[in-house]
């Protein structure tokens, strides 16, 4: 009820990357990859902690994780890691006011200088690097 009265979009609106261009997609991917990496980190600590239970427990865990599914997940983690780092550097510099354009007289049709081609290029490069790293990772993990 309160939600309806205040007409906030809520999590569904926050997490909808389809309406406001590439920068909003990057925001969404950064969140998703950050949460994905956090989940992986927790899982990874759990996985590697098996070693304190001795060799048998460790080998059992490896059996569980060194599978096609395990390698597909790892490939995804590689992609998330590369995108999150590369785009994270763009975002951190942006947060400091670097690369966000210079104020000036706005001219019709008022294209925002902060949504400039360098920012967009960095986002595309982050996506491309993640894709390349995933392809390489998949070839190593899943190849013969």
């Amino acid at each position: 009820m309160a939600e309806r009265l205040s007409n906030r979009e809520g999590i569904k609106g926050m997490a909808n990357p389809t309406r406001y261009g590439l920068e909003r997609v990057a925001y969404w991917l950064q969140r998703l990859s950050g949460l994905g990496l956090l989940a992986y980190l927790i899982g990874h600590i759990y996985e590697t902690s098996a070693i304190v239970n001795g060799k048998i427990a460790w080998d059992k865990m490896l059996e569980l994780t060194q599978t096609i599914e395990g390698h597909l997940i790892l490939t995804l983690v590689i992609g998330m890691c590369v995108f999150h780092t590369a785009n994270g550097i763009r975002v951190m510099l942006g947060h400091g006011g670097i690369g966000v354009g210079k104020p000036g007289q706005p001219e019709y049709p008022y294209k925002a200088a902060s949504l400039n081609y360098k920012q967009r290029l960095c986002i595309w490069v982050s996506i491309a690097l993640a894709a390349l790293a995933m392809m390489y990772g998949a070839s190593v993990l899943l190849g013969d």
Binding site: Y20, R24, A26, Y110, K111, S114
Partner: peptide, 25 residues
Amino acid sequence: HFAGSCSQVCPKGVDPAMAIQLLRG
């Protein structure tokens, strides 16, 4: 989080996303 959606929709070319990042600088 510098998602830039504000500047996408601003009808006056204010570019609030730029202002916010410069302020945070």
